[in-house]
């Protein structure tokens, strides 16, 4: 267990700066999730921590030690790849034990460690199989097992669940969270899926074009996004940004105003914004209603239960005023 400290780290490919001077503290034992749109530099940052990518400028510390120029295997990190990266010709047991074998660990001790990891991940019956005889979820577990046996100070995950189907993804989210509780290790997890970020993280780092938009606990980011980018990125469906010259009377001139779909109520009879229903999505427990309003442009509203509205009919949408998010010059205006 150790904390990770990233100090003015810069990454350049030739003349292109993909990560401009970035500072970040990953507390010991935390589950930190790096999120952001594709190409924002999440993998690059993670790979710099792993040592698979050189750092152009700045320093990285793990547990107080400067490891900026240390070989990947000496950093005390283990990484789980999106593609699993299992050695195709080795059995599950050999895959998990490979790092220990290279480190010169004795056979019996190694077998013990492999078995221990296999037990945690319920891989016991599969130890003799080859990776191609496993399902995607099982392969993912082997990849995690390979990380566990090395007892790393820091676990690094690069979109580990993106190749799995939705049901398995949901299950693995829970398993990974349980694993984190059980091991208590520092974990750094890259994803572009904000649901994974919200459900698993102690700390979310929102990246955009290589710089940090905001760092904080999931609910903090949800309740008080620092920038419109974070506001739009965290939460599903996306936050509505009101259009029109002055959509909200008490807001400052030129402010950007956002309201989450779950914080708008709909009524047949009367409300703030009359709007025409464009499309209705029935999700079972809840309904998403897409509307067009003369005053504030297009809106998405999430209502619990089923709502039988026909496209083309007019409804009245009313925001909960205390839930409005106001931004000026790209920053949140408090209160």
């Amino acid at each position: 267990m150790a904390d990770v400290l990233i100090q003015s780290v810069t990454k350049r490919y030739g003349t292109v700066e993909v990560v401009p001077s970035l500072n970040l503290e990953i507390p010991e034992g935390s589950f930190t999730v790096l999120v952001g749109p594709s190409g924002c530099g999440k993998s690059t940052l993670l790979r710099m921590i792993a040592g698979l990518e050189t750092v152009s400028d700045g320093k990285i510390f793990i547990g107080g030690t400067d490891i900026t120029h240390t070989a990947p295997s000496q950093r005390g990190v283990a990484m789980v790849f999106q593609s699993y990266a299992l050695y195709p010709h080795m059995s599950v047991a050999e895959n998990i034990g490979f790092g220990l074998r290279l480190a010169g660990m004795g056979k019996s001790e190694m077998e013990g460690r492999v078995r221990e990891a296999a037990d945690i991940l319920q891989l016991g019956p599969l130890l003799d199989r080859k990776p191609k005889q496993l399902s995607g979820g099982q392969r993912q577990r082997v990849a995690i097992g390979r990380a566990i046996v090395r007892k790393p100070k820091v676990f690094l995950f690069d979109e580990p669940l993106s190749n799995l189907d939705a049901a398995l993804r949901a299950q693995m989210r829970v398993e990974l969270s349980e694993l984190h509780e059980r091991l208590g290790s520092t974990m750094v997890y890259v994803t572009h899926d904000q649901v994974e970020a919200m459900t698993m993280a102690d700390q979310i780092v929102v990246l955009n074009k290589g710089h940090i938009e905001q760092v904080g606990a999931p609910m903090h980011l949800y309740n008080a996004p620092a920038t419109p980018f974070v506001a739009g990125f965290i939460g599903s469906p996306k936050m509505n940004f009101l259009q029109g010259p002055k959509p909200w009377a008490s807001a400052p001139q030129g402010a950007l105003i956002g309201i989450r779909p779950e914080h708008i109520t709909l009524s047949q009879t009367g409300g703030q914004w009359p709007a025409t229903v464009r499309h209705v999505e029935h999700l079972g427990g809840e309904t998403l209603v897409h509307l067009d309003s003369e005053c504030v442009g297009s809106l998405t509203v999430k209502v619990t239960g089923d709502l039988s509205a026909q496209a083309g009919t007019t409804l009245h949408a009313s925001p909960r005023p205390e839930m409005l998010h106001v931004f000026t010059d790209g920053q949140r205006v408090s209160a």
Binding site: L52, S73, F81, A85, H89
Partner: peptide
């Protein structure tokens, strides 16, 4: 990424050849 995984597992250049390249 097999090479990267091997590098993280502590494989030397020869071991990366022996355990990744050659079997593949």
């Amino acid at each position: 990424d097999l090479y990267e995984a091997a590098e993280l597992d502590g494989a030397t250049a020869w071991q990366r050849f022996r355990f990744v390249t050659w079997p593949c």
